[in-house]
Amino acid sequence: MPTPLLIHEIDATRQWVRERQRAGETVGVVPTMGALHAGHLSLAEAATKGCDRVIATVFVNPTQFAPSEDFERYPRDLEADAKKLGDVGVDAVFAPSVEAMYPPGATTSIDVGSVARPFEGAIRPTHFAGVATVVAKLLLIAPADRAYFGQKDYQQTVVVRRMVADLNLPIEVVVCPTVREADGIAMSSRNAYLSADERQRALCLSQGLREAERLHAAGERDASKLREAARRAIASTEGVELQYVAVLRDGTMDEVETVDAPAVIAVAARVGQTRLIDNVRLA
């Protein structure tokens, strides 16, 4: 497959999207922070199937990292990422500098409100303001018809959908299924931080979710029992610090006591020094 067009400038990116739309083509955008794995590429593949043209963004966004987090060591390899994107049919890649995205004097930030407060928002208080701000900027710079995100970052999808609706952004948000390794662990760029031993321990997240999913399929509707099934598997694993287990009404951050409609069970834990999240839908 040909290498996608690499664009660094904001005006050139907007022009590229607008020219395709004026030609009658639909455009999909896939926002990423790079360090691409099969999960990211599944979003790009979905976009190529759903749209005439696809642009991906590769930008490690500093405003969604707290000072104690891994911004500096987050993996970066634009050349490798561009090749992977080209191999699945992506037409263009927007890879801006930090200075282009946040020029001197920039102070605007987006507070999405209540959906950004609990769970990830409580543990990482500045995270979703950074996410909402950069996603809004990317969707204005690359004003595509559809934007593609992964289910693994469940709360992020809720935040993005709320932000898009509240700001009347003319774009469809498409959420694609989580992609997993053969052993069940959710694909994540941060999996690369895990030692071999930590990687084995990290399996407890997906195992706990699978146990809750099994109970639900067998007819269990008590959310506390589903939470406890996931909690046991994760909290009992040595070297894993469970941070939360939540059963939420699908598409929201509202906890439920009884699963009588589509729901999501979401977990977060620290494995060694690496923080991981995962979730499954209970339909």
Rank of each mutant, 00 (worst) to 15 (best):
211 E>D: 10
211 E>I: 03
211 E>K: 12
212 A>P: 05
212 A>G: 02
212 A>M: 06
213 E>P: 02
214 R>N: 08
214 R>M: 04
214 R>G: 00
214 R>E: 11
214 R>W: 05
215 L>I: 02
215 L>K: 07
215 L>P: 03
215 L>S: 10
215 L>W: 09
216 H>Q: 04
216 H>G: 00
217 A>L: 03
217 A>V: 06
218 A>S: 09
218 A>Q: 09
218 A>P: 01
219 G>N: 07
219 G>C: 06
220 E>D: 15
220 E>A: 12
220 E>H: 14
220 E>I: 13
221 R>G: 14
222 D>N: 03
222 D>K: 06
223 A>Q: 09
223 A>L: 14
223 A>W: 04
223 A>R: 06
224 S>V: 08
224 S>C: 07
224 S>D: 13
224 S>W: 02
225 K>Q: 15
225 K>H: 13
225 K>S: 11
225 K>I: 03
225 K>W: 03
225 K>G: 11
226 L>E: 11
227 R>L: 07
227 R>T: 07
227 R>V: 10
227 R>W: 02
227 R>I: 14
228 E>A: 12
228 E>G: 05
228 E>F: 01
228 E>R: 08
229 A>H: 00
229 A>E: 06
229 A>K: 02
230 A>G: 10
230 A>W: 11
231 R>M: 07
231 R>E: 14
231 R>Q: 10
232 R>H: 05
232 R>T: 05
232 R>P: 00
232 R>G: 02
232 R>I: 04
232 R>E: 15
232 R>V: 10
232 R>A: 14
233 A>S: 07
233 A>K: 15
233 A>Y: 12
234 I>F: 08
234 I>P: 14
234 I>Q: 15
235 A>H: 04
236 S>E: 15
236 S>A: 13
236 S>R: 08
236 S>K: 10
237 T>H: 02
237 T>E: 13
237 T>I: 05
238 E>R: 12
238 E>K: 15
238 E>Y: 15
238 E>D: 15
238 E>A: 15
240 V>S: 08
240 V>N: 09
241 E>H: 01
241 E>N: 02
241 E>P: 00
242 L>K: 05
242 L>D: 05
242 L>S: 03
242 L>Q: 05
243 Q>D: 14
243 Q>I: 10
244 Y>N: 11
244 Y>S: 07
244 Y>V: 14
245 V>S: 00
245 V>G: 05
245 V>M: 00
245 V>R: 01
245 V>F: 01
247 V>A: 11
247 V>F: 09
248 L>K: 00
248 L>P: 03
248 L>R: 03
248 L>N: 01
248 L>V: 02
249 R>H: 08
249 R>P: 04
249 R>N: 06
249 R>E: 15
250 D>H: 04
251 G>N: 14
252 T>P: 15
252 T>S: 15
252 T>I: 11
252 T>W: 12
253 M>A: 14
253 M>P: 07
